[in-house]
Amino acid sequence: MEIAASLANVTKTFGSTRAADGLTLSIPRGRTVALLGPNGAGKSTAIGMLLGLLPPDSGTASLFGGDPERAVRQGRVGAMPQEGGIIARVTVRELLTFVSGTYREPLPLNRILALAQLTALADRRVDRLSGGQAQRVRFAMAIAGDPELIVLDEPTAALDVEARRELWASMRGFADRGRTILFSTHYLDEADEQADRVIVINRGRVAADGTSAEIKRVVAATTVRVTVSGEAAWLGRLPGVTGMEINGDRATLRSTDADATVIALAQAGAVRDIEVTPADLEDAFVALTTAAAPSGAALLKENA
């Protein structure tokens, strides 16, 4: 698969903080990938290095197999940093006309305005917009040049629910053009809902990398509850089961492969009052970002 962006064994230290500590990741073309991590995990540093804004102390950052700065100059990348870019005394139209004019083959202005849901605001001054509107202008600057890859650093931080929804609608509109999107977030549901792939970062390292379903499967087990009578120890030996608890006649099984567990229960004729609760990413996230990373994460990383 063609790689749009990659970091290879990258380190970056600020004072005594290791913001990147042997970070290795790659973003395939045409995908929407989330960089998920708690605040201070090193997401912005990773993005800064990918965009050529920060030189790594060691290791290599590359875009489309080359120097990030070159890819930026060629107009193959659009970016929305965590903040900034809203300047005084220009209208939305003037600002976007300028930004798109720096690219060789930009989107037509009307298309940019429509994608970012700014058509009605085109002649407003950018410094007089609401937070959500300003964020859409910043998004519009990232897509103006119709780049192959857009990189967005916490695009929805500080936005209300409605503004987040609007921005995601805009982003999907752009992704549908076959473009690659890399965004960072500390909202789990956002990574879960919006990304084809989630890379969990913690303390400057990749803690997990896969689809959100894969991460959940490996890290946080699905819960299968079933009513049993008599001896129940055999339940613990069912495929996928990693732990169990018996409470009266109710068995709670933790399973990394709920499908296999349920099928085995059915074959044993033991399906009674069965209840399957999927793992949520929050459990996975907590498991991944607390001190002892589960070995499953490393395994998943190898497979990805």
């Binding site: 965009l51 804004l53 930026v72 107009g75 903040e83 900034g84 870019g85 690219y103 060789r104």
Partner: peptide
């Protein structure tokens, strides 16, 4: 200085302008 404070210089670095 105003542009730098507004993050505009960084935004410019992310366009094809050198």
């Amino acid at each position: 200085a105003e542009d730098r404070a507004a993050g505009w210089l960084r935004q410019l670095r992310l366009t094809p302008l050198t």
